[in-house]
């Protein structure tokens, strides 16, 4: 689950690669070149093309697709996607960090059981988990029925097909992705450090912010990456829980491909999205390096 694995350069017994070594590695390198590098390059090429009225791609050079990406509408969508994903990530950190930390501090037997409990939703289909919320949130659904009969609210809450529903869906889908890496780095942490901080007069809050958070930063960073990136591009949850009203960048790309038949524009959106993602990745790495220094 470690999202940022270190290069395996430490093996002192590694030998300089022989031609044979290169031959053996070739299939994997070719695979990466064909299915990772080539598609991205073609994506960039397509983003400068245009389309005919049936939607077939015409190879001429144009900046219009990028001009459109930086048009008000799409900037707003981009900003909103980042906003929702950031909110989701924030809630996941707030909910997941204490849980991951708590689990890691238990004695091994309890710890493993609790960890299993996190793994089960993690391995269960996210679609199914999203679907579960529809029955709960709809106007005549379980939540409203319960609250109404308990007389907590006078009339049904409007939850389904609102941004609130989208964020609930996103948090629910990605929370385990935050708990697991946090657990991973918290488990390695020596309990004595925390108690030492306390002995030195740090209150629980100060111990948390000045000792615990910096020491578990790699886990948080990995969790943030694992939640934030997929949350921006997710279209299924916004479709199912947002009533197709709360467009996020993933919905727009999907619509451009499968409705508007505008592959070049979808490609341009994809390129910008990728750049955005690379930037946030580098920012996290940079923050991590600073934390270590």
């Amino acid at each position: 689950m470690q999202a940022l694995p270190a290069a395996d350069a430490e093996n002192p017994h590694a030998r300089r690669a022989t031609p044979m070594g290169w031959w053996l590695l070739a299939p994997m390198l070719i695979w990466l070149a064909l299915f990772v590098v080539a598609p991205l390059l073609i994506l960039v090429v397509y983003s400068f093309c245009s389309r005919d009225d049936l939607g077939r791609v015409v190879f001429d050079f144009t900046w219009t697709n990028y001009a459109r990406v930086f048009d008000d509408t799409y900037l707003k969508i981009l900003a909103r996607s980042v906003g929702y994903a950031a909110l989701t990530t924030l809630i996941c950190v707030a909910a997941g960090f204490p849980a991951g930390w708590f689990i890691a501090r238990r004695p091994p037997a309890v710890r493993n059981r609790l960890l299993l409990l996190v793994m089960i939703p993690f391995w269960t289909s996210f679609l199914i988990r999203t679907y579960a919320w529809i029955a709960i949130l709809k106007s005549e659904g379980l939540l409203n029925a319960t609250l109404l009969s308990a007389r907590v609210i006078p009339q049904p809450l409007e939850l389904l097909y609102t941004p609130v529903a989208v964020v609930i869906g996103l948090v629910y889908a990605y929370l385990p992705f935050m708990i697991l890496p946090v657990y991973g780095s918290a488990e390695k942490l020596d309990n004595a450090l925390v108690e030492a901080a306390h002995d030195l007069g740090a209150g629980p809050l100060r111990a948390f912010s000045e000792v615990i958070i910096p020491l578990t930063w790699p886990g948080i960073a990995a969790g943030v990456l694992l939640v934030f990136v997929p949350a921006i591009g997710m279209f299924a949850i916004t479709d199912l829980m947002g009533g197709a009203k709360v467009a996020m960048i993933g919905n727009v790309i999907q619509n451009q491909v499968f409705k508007a038949r505008n592959l070049p524009f979808a490609a341009a959106l994809g390129v910008v999205f990728t750049l955005l993602f690379v930037a946030s990745y580098l920012a996290l790495q940079w923050r991590g390096r600073r934390a270590r220094a």
């Binding site: 709809k138 106007s139 005549e140 097909y161 009533g243 009203k245």
Partner: peptide, 18 residues
């Protein structure tokens, strides 16, 4: 004024009372 956009099965939201 619109609450939701749905071409697949707009009847669902009507039946559910949404």
């Amino acid at each position: 004024l619109i609450k939701l956009f749905d071409s697949d099965s707009p009847k669902t939201a009507l039946l559910n009372g949404d």
